[in-house]
């Protein structure tokens, strides 16, 4: 026979799923949130997102190529996602050099120093955001007023709902719930609109990129925890709806906590992880020094992921039901 046959162990067919396809699906799921950001912050949103992606991809290319001396890993698309997510986690109008620093930290330190995609312990975007928040607290919390609310005045700093809750809950007499849901209250670039982010969640679930376990348990835990507190003592800072729709909770629960690499493998593990994130988030929001706690919660639970993985085994065949 003129042609040599290929021999390999079974299976001989593949689903056709690739890392790239999953990453692209996540990017598509982020589009609604990006459109809201574009609508509220106009050019700033585009600029910050584009630069962030550029920095992340650039740093990844340079480090992989010249420091690690390997084949560039840009095509898998993970650096693009880190870029977008990091951009979504900073206020519009953040100085570019700070953004660049954040990208360098996220890609260089958090991701590539561990060996690249798949080997990092922490979610690069979350770690990048926290790095910036700790290093540049002033710049990271000066929220530009949304373009629709204040087009005339070029206001620099307006408080977020969570910030207000922390400082003077009584100022929040009328809850801007509808505005929060749609994304008209101040906040970081991509966390504005719960509605847009939920749209993304539906897309990810439909495409089977993620399962419901992590986002639903996080949101459920937050709602349940604050709901119980609210029943005991109906103060505005305990209102579960505010907690669900404010800050980075949606963005974190849907896009950051579900990061494949840094979340548990099994369903059991995912639920433990989600509950942990929910609890820590609420605890920080209510009793911590920061108004927002989702990033810290995710980072903390990222650290627990290997432990969770080693203690939660999937439900084995023949283990539970024997003669059911």
């Amino acid at each position: 026979m003129e042609q040599k046959l290929i021999v390999s162990p079974s299976p001989h067919i593949h689903s056709g799923d690739t890392i790239q396809k999953n990453m692209v699906a996540v990017l598509i799921a982020l589009i609604p949130a990006f459109l809201v950001a574009l609508y509220t912050f106009r050019l700033d949103a585009l600029l910050i997102t584009a630069l962030s992606v550029l920095f992340c991809v650039g740093f990844e290319y340079l480090i992989v190529r010249f420091v690690m001396k390997k084949e560039p890993t840009i095509p898998d698309g993970s650096a693009i996602i880190t870029g977008v997510l990091l951009a979504f986690n900073v206020p519009a109008g953040l100085p570019v050099w700070i953004l660049a620093l954040g990208c360098l930290f996220a890609i260089g330190v958090v991701k590539l120093s561990f060996g690249g995609l798949g080997n990092n312990i922490f979610n690069p975007a979350i770690a990048g955001r926290i790095f910036l928040l700790i290093s540049f607290p002033a710049q990271m919390t000066s929220w530009p007023a949304t373009a629709i609310a204040d087009t005339a005045t070029d206001a620099v700093s307006s408080a977020t709902v969570l910030g207000l809750l922390k400082q003077s809950p009584e100022a929040l007499e009328a809850l801007p719930l509808q505005q929060m849901f749609l994304g008209l209250e101040p906040g970081s670039l991509g966390e504005m609109s719960a509605a847009a982010l939920l749209l993304g969640l539906i897309f990810l679930l439909w495409k089977k990129v993620i399962t419901w376990h992590i986002p639903v348990t996080i949101l459920g835990t937050v709602a349940l925890f604050t709901g119980i507190l609210f029943l005991i003592d109906p103060l505005p800072q305990y209102n579960p709806l505010i907690h669900l729709f404010s800050g980075g909770l949606m963005l974190g629960a849907i896009f950051m906590a579900t990061d494949y690499v840094t979340s548990p493998l099994t369903k059991k593990g995912m639920i433990i992880y989600g509950v942990g994130i929910g609890f820590v988030t609420v605890a920080i929001r209510l009793w911590g020094a920061y108004p927002e706690g989702i990033s810290f919660a995710i980072l903390l639970m990222n650290a627990f992921t290997p432990l969770i993985n080693s203690y939660t085994t999937p439900k084995r065949f023949g283990e539970v039901v024997k003669n059911g």
């Binding site: 040599k4 046959l5 290929i6 021999v7 390999s8 162990p9």
Partner: peptide
């Protein structure tokens, strides 16, 4: 001369168990 192309995981032990 090679008569076919092995395309499995790059380990002798895996190839040897296969064929």
């Amino acid at each position: 001369p090679r008569q076919n192309l092995y395309d499995g995981a790059s380990r002798c032990s895996i190839a040897a168990a296969l064929y």
